[in-house]
Design a binder for these strands. Structure first.
Length: 290
DNA sequence: AAAAGCGCCAACCGCCGGGCT
DNA sequence: AAGCCCGGCGGTTGGCGCTTT
């Protein structure tokens, strides 16, 4: 019989009331670190009590995973990390923990915050829903190729690479092999001339003669079961970004719900992005050269 | 210089699934 | 089989600090 079962409701409430909330103090951090170093992590509720912390197990777990764990990375996300997040989000949607698994040292919370504060901000500027097909198209059609281009430039000029970035670069190399984001690569037309998704989530380009459309991100609307947890199963988009008419990107088309306004923030134009650390293209150039 | 507005991010909340009793 | 606990996840909130007015 668990001890808590013997507790009366008032006892539980009293204990709950005594629990501390809000920002962690240095002393609490120290207690938690020392305890985990001695006894390891897990069994968070009992850990909290044994360590003498007046916190919930959940709170301790979160503090450890998101902040105190030794391999936690802090600071701005690199270009590679940003690109990987965009790509993985287009594949998996808001599966933050899953995305975080591919970014060593980054937490799901951090990635979620990045998405909400940086990426969704762009959607707001464009006055479109960040989960809309149009916005996902914009990401894939413009930002990701540009980011990839920049990442490649950086990797060709930079000789040093940490173990973590190597992991990310491996993932990105897979992406590069399996997608056609590169602006310089020749287009790879699909036989069926339609963007279609097959059972393993591969997406092929359609041939719309007047305005080529990027593949739909079927995750947003489709069956999540087709998505595998590993990058190795990513399939080609078979789209060459250079084939797309950027100027027509925001123009009205038959699918009116996909329209968005570009006039007030001319973010489609090169080098004329909104002034944001992560998204301003000018700053992107500087970012990788640090 | 002060107030208001805004962005970022750490932390919390509620829900869910799995495991144990 | 049912009830309970725990851990994990995604969504949301609140406070702090910076910027703008």
């Amino acid at each position: 019989m668990r001890a808590t079962k013997k507790m009366t409701n008032s006892c539980i409430e009293e204990e709950f009331d005594q629990l501390k909330r809000g920002p962690w103090t240095l002393e609490e951090d120290d207690l938690l670190i020392r305890y985990i170093n001695c006894h390891g992590e897990g069994r968070w509720n009992s850990l909290a009590k044994s360590a003498g912390l007046k916190r919930t197990g959940k709170s301790c777990r979160l503090r450890w995973l998101n902040y105190l764990r030794p391999d936690t990375k802090r600071g701005n996300l690199t270009l590679q990390e940003q690109l990987l997040i965009l790509e993985l989000h287009s594949k998996w949607g808001n599966r933050w923990s899953k995305i975080a698994q591919h970014l060593p040292g980054r937490t799901d919370n951090e990635i979620k915050n990045y998405w909400r504060t940086r990426v969704q901000k762009q959607a707001r500027h464009l006055k479109i829903d960040s989960s809309s097909k149009r916005f996902v198209e914009a990401l894939q059609r413009f930002w990701m190729p540009r980011l990839l281009e920049k990442v490649e430039q950086d990797s060709s000029t930079s000789s040093t690479s940490t173990a973590c970035t190597s992991t990310i670069e491996n993932d990105l190399n897979k992406l590069k092999q399996q997608t056609s984001f590169k602006t310089s690569s020749p287009i790879q037309p699909c036989n069926n001339k339609e963007y279609t998704t097959n059972s393993s989530s591969s997406i092929c380009a359609s041939d719309s003669s007047e305005n080529k459309m990027l593949p739909e991100i079927s995750l947003l609307h489709g069956d999540s079961s087709i998505y595998d947890s590993s990058l190795k199963d990513m399939d080609c988009y078979n789209v060459d970004i250079s084939e797309y008419d950027m100027m027509n990107f925001g123009r009205p088309d038959d699918t009116s719900d996909l329209n968005f306004q570009v006039a007030d923030t001319d973010w489609i134009s090169y080098g004329d992005m909104s002034a944001d650390t992560y998204w301003n293209m000018d700053e992107l150039w500087q970012f990788g050269n640090r």
